[in-house]
Design a protein around this nucleic acid. Sequence first.
DNA 1: AATTGTCTTTGCGCTGGCGCAAACAAAAGC
DNA 2: GCTTTTGTTTGCGCCAGCGCAAAGACAATT
Lengths: 240, 240
Amino acid sequence: MALQKLSPTVIEGLTQIPLLKDLPADLIASILNVAQRRAVEEGSAFFFQGDPAEKVYVLLEGRVKLFQLTPDGQQVLLRVIGPWSLFGAIALAHGEFYPVTAQTAQNSTALYWPVSVLMGFINKSPQLAMNALQIMAGHVQEFQDRFRELATERVERRLARAILRLTSQTGKKVPEGILLNLPITRQDLAEMTGTTLYTVSRILSQWESQGLIQSGREKIIICFPHGLVNIAEDLPARQT
Amino acid sequence: MALQKLSPTVIEGLTQIPLLKDLPADLIASILNVAQRRAVEEGSAFFFQGDPAEKVYVLLEGRVKLFQLTPDGQQVLLRVIGPWSLFGAIALAHGEFYPVTAQTAQNSTALYWPVSVLMGFINKSPQLAMNALQIMAGHVQEFQDRFRELATERVERRLARAILRLTSQTGKKVPEGILLNLPITRQDLAEMTGTTLYTVSRILSQWESQGLIQSGREKIIICFPHGLVNIAEDLPARQT
DNA sequence: AATTGTCTTTGCGCTGGCGCAAACAAAAGC
DNA sequence: GCTTTTGTTTGCGCCAGCGCAAAGACAATT
């Protein structure tokens, strides 16, 4: 029923996503056919941490931040996702509640399926289950890696990594370099890297004075990516 | 072919593990039937980080540490597992290489299956795929949580959490309290909590002087679990 | 009993990063 | 335009935790 509302371009895009990879065309069609659609304006949320996990989402457009709240109210930004990404997939694994909040950073729309529906498809198609498994496995690896980073590396390097990661997801070429095409605050970066907004601000200022980046309010342009990579990796001691 | 070598008690135990949960008895039988068995003595490894990921293991007895090596040679201890735990499951998701090393902390034996074999079963049983998915999802959540911990909490609390986690896995009652039934060094604890062995030692000494624990070489006994929980959670300010 | 290797403890100095405070800058609202 | 809100920068003091070094404790080996 939602299918006719999806543009061919969107459908084309959807057939490429990891969740639907290598599925027979007719199965993809019937899955998309029962998808529902939801638009959420900037600053609102698709779901909150603690909500019953009963839907699985694929972002069509916009930008979504996934974060966790600590018992004492601090936030930790786990992921920032763009179009074609899956989120809320924990629901598939009979997770009772979403462990994160999915808040929009821009006006966004997403497709979603009730778990029960998706589960029905999984029972018919092991490939779909395998795809889900692979996505999950990817997340496990990513968080293992970030855990290691946080445990062993200092802030400057973690920040460089985080920015490079974001760049690869949302980077957009502009004359001065690569623009992080996403409104992101110092606070956000701090929450992603396990530090404070002050420290992020200081490091960005330092990088700016070295000509590595240009930054402004909720805006970062990477002028010299290689410099950041040098910081992120263990490469030769860098000279100013 | 390995089935007849497994004692009924072991088979009984295996049918309970999350991976095989809710599977028809005959399927479990045929899965166990093609399992192979491998013993690894203390200090050796089932596999190393970077090895091709082609087997999935279930620990039958012993204790296995899963850790990652950083590019510059530091270790990070991701998990310590005991009997009935699944490891190397990344292989199921077409992970090319193991992202961790699985080293034994005691003489250990495990069952294992080549991925291809297990994959065959998955194609026949969506339930098996679901089980794997749930296990993965559990890991994602665990690492998200630990990431948050590492990003927002101080060492003492992280250490308390780590020890409580280990206790719930391997705790054994003794007259003085609960013994961590696993040879674990200060260094190991440091690698689990993202700190240094010096800091771990200092904190344990402090707890010992407060009567919360008794500790010795590669040995920890929790005398007053509630005290640790107080530290681990955000409970009321504790007085000495 | 003595030796060796591994693990643990603790003193000490140092620093990376925290976090308050206060000023500044850029949007957004009126 | 002015005000308010939201985000950013930076000085400053402080401390949690790091990491060296050196001594002590325990286990295993000879």
